[in-house]
């Protein structure tokens, strides 16, 4: 079936199977490989995207459900002026190792800071608890969030 949706501000069309997830459609149909697949069960947050402005796991949303909606992926965060401040902060603080969790965490962090521009440490932990990272032990990810909040 054909679906139409807006991805990172652009009108897109994709030919998807009925049971296909939004994650699969973004990656394999639209060539947006930035959103990662590490569990396909909504447990790791590697596939985090914004669907009409809400943070969702793209692996848990059917592609068909996104018909007519607006999706922002990690690829849609940087603009012509360069990196998004959250991306900048992740690089600067050493919050990236293998980086497989990074796109999801970057998307989740932008959404956290939009809702709560000055989060406490506990609020950061809580907000990012759906995004697993196996490499960093999270310490530098928290540094990145604080740095991005400070600069905003």
């Amino acid at each position: 079936m054909k679906i139409e949706l807006i991805v990172n501000g652009e009108q897109c069309e994709a030919d998807v199977w009925e049971g296909e997830s939004l994650l699969y459609a973004l990656r394999e149909r639209l060539g947006l490989y930035g959103s990662k697949n590490a569990c396909e069960q909504g447990e790791c947050g590697s596939c985090s995207v914004l669907l009409d402005g809400s943070l969702v796991c793209a692996c848990l949303v059917l592609a068909a459900q996104a018909e007519g909606h607006e999706v922002v992926t990690v690829e849609g965060l940087a603009d012509a002026n360069g990196l998004h401040p959250v991306q900048e902060a992740f690089v600067e603080t050493g919050a990236v190792q293998c980086g497989f969790c990074t796109p999801g965490l970057v998307v989740a962090t932008t959404e956290l800071l939009r809702q709560n521009p000055d989060p406490s440490d506990d609020e950061i932990r809580e907000a990012l608890s759906g995004n697993l990272c196996r490499c960093t032990g999270y310490t530098k990810i928290f540094d990145a969030v604080r740095l991005a909040a400070q600069r905003a």
């Binding site: 947006l32 490989y33 930035g34 959103s35 992926t73 990690v74 690829e75 965060l77 940087a78 990196l83 959250v86 991306q87 992740f90 690089v91 600067e92 050493g94 990236v96 980086g99 990074t102 796109p103 970057v106």
Partner: peptide, 12 residues
């Protein structure tokens, strides 16, 4: 900074 840091945060 990591040499691969930027492409890892942009999804590239």
């Amino acid at each position: 900074r990591r040499v691969d840091g930027i492409p890892k945060t942009t999804g590239e």
